[in-house]
Every structure is written in C-alpha cells, then in structure tokens.
Design a protein around this nucleic acid. Sequence first.
DNA 1: GGTCCCGCGGGACAAATGTCACGGGCGGCC
DNA 2: GGCCGCCCGTGACATTTGTCCCGCGGGACC
Lengths: 260, 260
Amino acid sequence: MSDAHPDQAGPSTTSSSGVPGGPGGRAGTDAARGGASGGEAEGTRPGVEQTRPGAEETRRIRVLLAEDQGMMRGALALLLGLEDDIEVVAQVAAGDRIVAEAVAVRPDIALLDIELPGRSGLDAAAELRTRLPSCRVLILTTFGRPGYLRRAMEAGAAGFLVKDGPVEDLAVAIRRVLRGERVIDPALAAAALSAGPSPLTQREQDVLNAAADGATVADIAGRVFLSESTVRNYLSSAIGKTGTRNRMEAVRAARQNGWL
Amino acid sequence: MSDAHPDQAGPSTTSSSGVPGGPGGRAGTDAARGGASGGEAEGTRPGVEQTRPGAEETRRIRVLLAEDQGMMRGALALLLGLEDDIEVVAQVAAGDRIVAEAVAVRPDIALLDIELPGRSGLDAAAELRTRLPSCRVLILTTFGRPGYLRRAMEAGAAGFLVKDGPVEDLAVAIRRVLRGERVIDPALAAAALSAGPSPLTQREQDVLNAAADGATVADIAGRVFLSESTVRNYLSSAIGKTGTRNRMEAVRAARQNGWL
DNA sequence: GGTCCCGCGGGACAAATGTCACGGGCGGCC
DNA sequence: GGCCGCCCGTGACATTTGTCCCGCGGGACC
C-alpha cells in the first residue's frame, strides 16, 4: 500500500507475543534492514527491481504469513517477496492475531502454521472461512499427521503442505491454490483416508491433553472439572482405543495421529 | 525431541546425502566439492579480512548447512546465497552425514542444527573440532535450552543462535564468527550460567531417555540392560533431582533444561 | 410408556510405580 | 589408608495407575 514504514495502523508485522523457551524476549523490531532484504512493505523503496513481464495487468498475490519461529517466518517472507507475482502483506507470530490481521489487510491467501502460540492455526482457519471467505487458506506445518490434514480440510483449507520438501513447492502451491485447485500431498491424503477419523470422544481428548505433561489423576480431575474416578475411566478407555498400555503411550499415539 | 521424525507418513525425501538443488535454485550443492579437493594446504587463516562491499577478489565464505527440515534448509541456503560474500557449499539433512561432508568440502563454517536424525549436531560439532579444526561451528537451534548452550560450548562451538529472531542475524553471526568472535545470546548465556550443569548422572539420563516414550520399567530395563530394581532406583533419583513427581514430569523437566 | 446410548461417578482389585533402607564393587581424591 | 560418589543390585512397602463392574440421570428414538 501507500505507506512507507512499519508504523502503519493495521498491518504492522510481527506482534511481540512471546515464544516459549527463550529467556530473552526480543521485541518487535523486525524492521527490514535495507539492501537486499526487501521485507514485506511494498513501497519501501521505489527501486524494487523486479521485472514485471506483463506490466500492471496482474495484481500481485497478497499473502498473510503466520508462523511462530522467527527465522522461518523471516526467511519465507523474504523468499516469497522475491517472486515477482507474490507480495507478503502481513506477518504474525501468534495464532490469535491471525483473524484480526487478516480482516485488516484482506489478503488473497493465508499461509498458516498449525502449532502456534495463542491459538491453533486450524481454529483460525475455520473462523477465517466465515469472516473472510475471499481468503483462501494454505496450511503449512511441520508434521504431516493424518488428523491434522483431516481437520484442515474440515476447516475449509484449500491446501496442506509439510515443511519438508523443497521451498520451491511453496510458491507453486500458492499459485495453484489461487487458481482454485487444492494442493495436498497424495501420500498424506491416503494416510488420512486410511486412518479414519479420531475414535476418541471429546472428553477423552480433554483428559489426554490434560495428562500430556505428566499430571496425576488428581491434577487432571482438577483441570477438567471431573471426578477422579471419571478421569480414570476416560484414561482407561483412551488407552484401550489407542491400543497402548500407558497414558503416556496413549498421549503419544494420539498426538502421532493428530487426534489432539 | 519429541518430534524428530516419528512418522514417515510424508514423502520421505530426506535422504542422507546431499540435497538435490532445485531446478530454479542455483544453490551450490555438493557439486562444489570437486573443486575443493585439490588445494588442501590452504592458509590456516581463511578470509580474516573484513567484508569489503564490492571487492570481488576476496574468497567467499564457504558454509556447510545441516538442517533436517527441508523447507527451512532450502530457505536458509537460498538466503545465504544471496549475500555476496557467502556461499553454501554443502547441505545435509542428517546428523551422521555432517563430518563426512565437511571433510570432503572443507567449509569455513558449519551451521548445525542440534536435533537431527542420525546424530546430534552437538556430537558432530565435537568430532568436527578434532577432524577439521579450521572449520568453525555455529549452532542454530530451535530451543534455547541452557544445557544445549553449555554442551555446545564444551563441544567447541564458536556461536549459538536460536531460530527465533530475525534472519538478518544469521549472516551477521556468520561474519562475526569468521572474524574470530563468539556470538551468543547474552540472556541465554546468563540462563546457562545460572542453571549450572546437569545434576543427572549418565545412567539417570539413559534411563530417562529410555522412559521418554512411555515404556514400562521392564521395557527400560531391557533396553539399558539393567535390573528392574536398578531402573526404579535411577528413576526415583532422577525424579528427586528434578524436583518432580513422575517420570513423565522428570523427562519434561530434563528436556526443558537440555539435560537429555 | 420402554429402551438404548452417553456422560458421569463409585468401588474394588491387580498391577505398576515410586520410595526407602540396605548391601557390594569400583575408582578418584585428600 | 579412609572418604566419597557412582554403579548395580535386592527386598519391602505405600501410593498411584489401570481395569472392570456397577449405578444414576438425561436425552433420543420407537
């Protein structure tokens, strides 16, 4: 747009929301350093030397990028910015910033990680579907879990990419999605189909989630507001359904399939 | 490392050898190794000169990049390739390929992830230290765990970067390391110092590692070749030292500090 | 009405887990 | 030498965990 600096009202970039682990919180200050790393603001320098083959007749693809890992986010943004038909108009690091940012900048496509602080990318995708139907969603995640793919499809995502595989796939996938196609790894689709939907009931998932960090039965009961006996029963049935022998194994198995 | 690569549902690209350079990306793959094999008695002080913008006659900084996540690896390689004083001469996706590739292409600096399939980047760094002393090591990891930093320093790494923070830091850190400086996040260094070394003995770590996936005492005993009673004792003492109440909490706590 | 399923909880029980006290052997260090 | 820490093991014990069977209430469906 017409601005020049990261101080614009809506689409300022990386919110400073914290990322787990790092003791040193490094605040926003993502200001793209000059020179080669153009960054996302479109008009920073007039001399962006991309060669436009067809003049102005095609508007660039406006991309919102949601990814918590700073280096990954920056690298993807720079790379996409190098493509002459793609423009990164917003970057967010937290899941609960996605929808607000999207309605502010109205991108053509949202590139969402799943595991984000604050809110799952799948959740955000579902809300985006109703709040901003013109924006297509492309999920980009580390783990190709069958359940993730299933939920992504149910949330209305148009594509599902794993972070393995070459970077070149990314721009290609974006263009294909914008053309209305669906892009999904075929092997992953097969796995998702064969795995079937989650056999776990809602309560079982809750209890497993609460048990994931090593909490005792009493702890879980306190968090989920259930009796200890009930918690044991749910744990037991979850263990049975996952074919495991522990709550620990059950948690791992459920995570493995994307059921949590 | 809860992650590593538990499921191979996706397209199993990550072969252990060099990564195929994309058709569009002119990223230097191992094609460059042929040129390097000739002159081996190079000056012991590679490229100590400051980066002079525009000066072409100085040799570019030769970088080896070890990172398992394909997209991250590709993005970093492309980005570093854009810098006019840096050249990515090798990319590996598995930890057990690092040393072999390094002695083959003799890079100036090795950019290593820690959590890699096959072998830890810290291990590889330690061996690199003796096998190829001219090559400096810069650790690039997702998690800024105090124990990781400590072990990286003990392995002779010259720098420690977390994958948060802007991409621009990367090239800067590479140049600084090549100049002989050490680059470490100050906050992280303070945390590592205050946390002290791991209180866990070797066996306790082994047992915790074996217990990480929800194995029973009998399973652990079988894996570590110990009596079940002994396993219980080690687990108990590990639980005590970490100040937790379960093996599950103990595993999480130990992971959190980088003690595993 | 009846019947079925589901969420929720209780109680009893076996198995696993966590704790403690106690041994012996080995190596380093004052 | 004595002391200490780590290694490895045993046995006993309390607690927790996992399993099974039971009951209650409510909603859906016939």
